[in-house]
Amino acid sequence: MKISITKALVLSVLMIGFTFQVQAQETPKFASPLQTGHYIPGIISIRDFADPAPASGLVLLDYNIFLSGDKYFNKNGEEVTEFESPTGADIALNPDVSGYINNPVLMWVAKQKVLGATFLTGISIAYNTVNADIAYNRSGIIEGSNQEGSSNSNVSGFSDFNVMPVYLSWGLKEFDITAGYMFYAPTGEYTPGGNNNTGLGYWSNIFQVFTYYYPMKVKGETSKALAVMFAPTYEIIGKIKDVEVVPGNRLSLDYGVDMYFTEKLSVGVFGGNNWQVGNDTGSGVYWDGSIKDKNGIVGGQVGYWLWTNRLQAIGKFGSTYGSKQRLKQNYFQINLTFMTNALTGNKAAKTSSSK
């Protein structure tokens, strides 16, 4: 049975739309106090980082992600619906944010082993479309200035560029272990306080370890039909450009169980959590930088090989829970994986053997 090796790490469209324009007449523009980091758990499919061997060559991916959110939860995990403004008037918070991400990914899987592992490398860049309509009073959401207003924006454009220089995947008898490093470059549109941002405005360095356990036995031999996945991710975040703000580093967990019922059909359940573990720092932090947001996600997926071992489609649905200082979001995905069989190294191997 061929195992897919899809990979797509994308921005949270909901947070991009939820920027809260903050501008003062005699001061520079401010950064948004709502930061998610580049890595969002639950977006990847369960077996994306399983050892792809013996597959090799170029792999083309297309992730289609539809997101929506209409509830905001404060630092205490309480849903916020209205505030009392500094003037004493009640102001409703009415977030209505929806978005679509198309994230094409190009990956290459080496045929030769490196340190006994399969070597993977790749690049990706997402195109985001966001519709956001928000009325707010900042003092009721974030510890900081007493500002109120509304934001209505329809934004689209390319997000930040993602590079995966090296991932190594070891295929063991009952386990697969994949470790790697990636970074995001702030190539997307970003202006502090802007309402047309499609990027996050900072560099991220991300380190990951994915572990897969295959507990099923068939005639005494390990079967990969059933996979249990657990993966921590640590993200180191750089300074936001044009402002003196460094968002706190983040820790994420992905986990899931996926079962093949036939050689083509698989069904799985997944979860994920994302925590801010470091304080927001810098002279541009006008909110309480010690307040840390968090978010959880749970959902299910169904995969089917439309073309055996060449083209796979995965449908996913997920919903967040336990949110603090974050929007609650729902999303639906259609992920496509195409094994091109290009640049596999097989031709070179045949030429060599014939001499």
Rank of each mutant, 00 (worst) to 15 (best):
I3G: 00
I3K: 03
S4K: 05
I5A: 14
V10I: 13
L14D: 14
I16Y: 00
G17L: 10
Q23N: 06
E26N: 15
E26W: 14
T27D: 13
A31Y: 08
T36G: 15
H38T: 01
H38D: 04
I46D: 00
A50D: 07
P54N: 11
G57V: 13
Y63F: 08
I65E: 07
G69H: 09
D70P: 02
K75T: 09
K75N: 12
N76I: 06
E78H: 10
E78V: 08
E82I: 01
G88K: 04
I91E: 05
L93M: 06
N94C: 01
D96A: 15
V97A: 04
G99N: 12
G99E: 09
P104R: 03
V105E: 02
M107R: 09
W108Y: 13
A110K: 00
Q112H: 07
K113M: 10
L115G: 10
A117Y: 05
A117M: 10
T118V: 13
A126D: 14
V130N: 08
N131S: 15
A132Q: 10
A135D: 11
A135E: 10
S139F: 04
G140N: 05
S145L: 11
G149S: 09
S150Q: 11
S153D: 13
S156V: 09
F158V: 08
F158M: 14
F158G: 07
D160G: 00
N162L: 09
N162Q: 10
P165Q: 02
Y167T: 08
S169R: 06
S169N: 04
W170V: 02
Y190W: 15
T191A: 06
G193I: 14
N197M: 05
Y202F: 15
F207H: 06
S223A: 12
P232W: 01
T233M: 06
Y234P: 04
I236P: 02
I236W: 04
V243H: 05
V245S: 04
G248T: 03
N249A: 02
R250G: 01
D254L: 03
G256W: 08
V257K: 07
M259T: 03
F261C: 01
K264A: 13
V277C: 08
G278I: 01
D280Q: 07
G282K: 11
V285G: 02
V285N: 02
Y286T: 10
G289M: 04
G289P: 02
G303P: 04
W307D: 09
W307A: 11
T308N: 14
I314D: 02
I314C: 03
G318P: 05
Y321W: 15
Q325I: 03
N330K: 12
Q333H: 05
N335V: 05
L336E: 04
T337K: 00
F338H: 05
A342C: 14
K347S: 15
K350Y: 12
S352M: 12
S352T: 10
S353G: 13
S354H: 10
